[in-house]
Design a binder for these strands. Structure first.
Length: 454
DNA sequence: TTTTGAGTTGTTCGA
DNA sequence: GTCGAACAACTCAAA
């Protein structure tokens, strides 16, 4: 029998339930469809670059049998199953709104063709609809969700390993270039030595993290100049490694607060998918409705300065330059730049979300939205409104030697350490912008505005 | 139904 | 320089 395995956000061979359980079929036709019709928003530029390389890598591990199509998933599947006598489609279970809507259309269309559609959870440790409070409603606070909801409910599925007797077939010639994932201007050249985009690389990075860094993770994760984070997020985003694989590799380690902390960060990703599943409107609107009346400033000049890393606040600018140069930003610094945009500049979290979406390799539909709403105080389990990061203090505290700051802003290399986070106070003849706002005034303005909403 | 305790990541001020 | 309190009340979760 012929079956079609549809790859979407889990671009791997190892521990891929959709592929694993397809492999009992005689013949598998592996397909990736870049659907630019059944989506709410297009992938960002960085994501497309990552996707391009992830697909190429997957194609190689499937012995060059992966098919690439661009367009409407329904139309493409209808043609493929008809022309090739395919009886079964296997793919990942959808948990995000757009994917669920598409899934329903696929099932309907395939029913009409007499094709069975089977889905498998490839994406999360706990399915969002399985975790509910005793009263049957979803959690809105992370800690009880994670501790009482997830951890107490059941163990996540064990990873499946490599599929057996994989018999993939090429039925037509297609080219990845037809997906138009790479821009013509070679702006992405700068990433080529920065990231090794493959399933093997993901596993290697995670192994090295376990070997070298995990027992210093809980504290070390806050310091951008030292390499104590796993930097696995873009691999997880595109499913080059499964969260189940990660989870069970960690389970094999001795119980340790650092290991538990890393697991809880996986838990935060789960929580983001959970929130978007139960409250899909939060993709566009504030989870807390009272913020719908919030009057954002949205000053274009300020927003542009933030994007370019020209705010005059070194730790913010270093972060924004890291993002632009590497397609990644350290977690601590993400909070600093996001707090700065939303609270000090009073710019709508949706604008920040959109910029991250475009620039981050790990731009994840759920995590990005949930994270920005958390920072803005509009989301679940929100930060208290008076929690405003002071970029000068944060820089001094978490980049006390200035290594991170000067890595991305070399113009500041000769500034004495104690002046590094306020360089224009030290000298006004620098090749570096003056602060676009007065920190203290912007803080007071923000507190006032948030007080009106509370 | 009512009550109780708790809630990712901070900053500032004044003693 | 260090330390604790204030910042704010509300919503959520569970007994």
């Amino acid at each position: 029998m012929k079956s079609l395995t549809l790859f979407r956000n889990n671009l791997r061979k190892n521990d891929n339930p959709a592929l694993f359980f397809s492999s009992v079929s005689n013949e598998i036709i592996p397909v990736y469809i870049y659907d630019d019709i059944n989506i709410r928003k297009e992938l960002g530029g960085a994501s497309k670059y990552w996707l391009y390389h992830a697909l190429k890598s997957l194609d190689i591990s499937l012995e060059n049998t992966l098919h690439y199509f661009k367009g409407n998933t329904i139309k493409i599947l209808e043609r493929l199953v008809t022309e090739n006598d395919i009886k079964e489609i296997n793919y990942e279970e959808p948990f995000l709104e757009d994917d669920i809507i598409l899934h329903k259309k696929i099932v309907l269309a395939m029913q009409n063709k007499g094709v069975e559609v089977k889905t498998y959870n490839c994406t999360v440790l706990w399915k969002p609809y399985e975790i509910l409070k005793n009263d049957g409603t979803p959690y809105k606070v992370f800690s009880p969700y994670y501790r009482k909801g997830c951890l107490k409910l059941k163990k996540p599925n064990k990873p499946l390993g490599q599929p057996n007797n994989l018999n993939c077939t090429k039925i037509e010639q297609t080219s990845i270039d037809d997906l138009n994932l790479l821009d013509k201007t070679p702006w992405h050249k700068k990433f080529e030595n920065e990231w090794d985009i493959s399933e093997n690389a993901a596993l290697k990075i995670f192994n090295e993290f376990i070997e070298n860094s995990i027992y210093e993770y809980k504290i070390g994760r806050d310091f951008p100049a030292i390499n104590k984070n796993s930097r696995l997020s873009p691999y997880i985003r595109f499913g080059l490694i499964s969260v189940n694989k990660i989870w069970y590799m960690l389970e094999n380690l001795n119980f340790d607060k650092n290991v538990e902390h890393y697991k809880s960060e996986i838990g935060w990703r789960e929580f983001s998918y959970y929130l978007l599943y139960h409250f899909p409107f939060m993709a566009k609107d504030n989870l807390q409705k009272k913020f719908d009346n919030f009057n954002w400033d949205n000053n274009k000049q300020n927003f542009d300065a933030w994007k370019k890393g020209e705010t005059g606040f070194p730790i913010v600018d270093a972060g924004m330059k890291e993002l632009w140069q590497t397609g990644y930003m350290h977690n601590r610094i993400r909070m600093v730049v996001a707090s700065f945009l939303v609270k000090n500049l009073l710019i709508d979290w949706r604008l920040g979300e959109a910029w991250f979406w475009d620039c981050l390799f790990d731009a994840d539909y759920a995590s990005n939205i949930a994270g920005w709403q958390w920072t803005a105080g509009t989301g679940a389990d929100a930060a208290p409104y008076f929690r405003i990061f002071n970029p000068i203090l944060q820089g001094q505290k978490f980049d006390s030697e200035g290594k991170y700051t000067t890595k991305y802003i070399p113009e500041l290399s000769n500034i004495p350490l104690k002046n590094l986070q306020e360089p224009t106070e030290f000298s006004d003849k620098l090749n570096y912008p003056k602060p676009i706002i007065n920190y203290k005034l912007s803080r007071d303005r923000s507190l006032k505005k948030y007080e009106e909403i509370k």
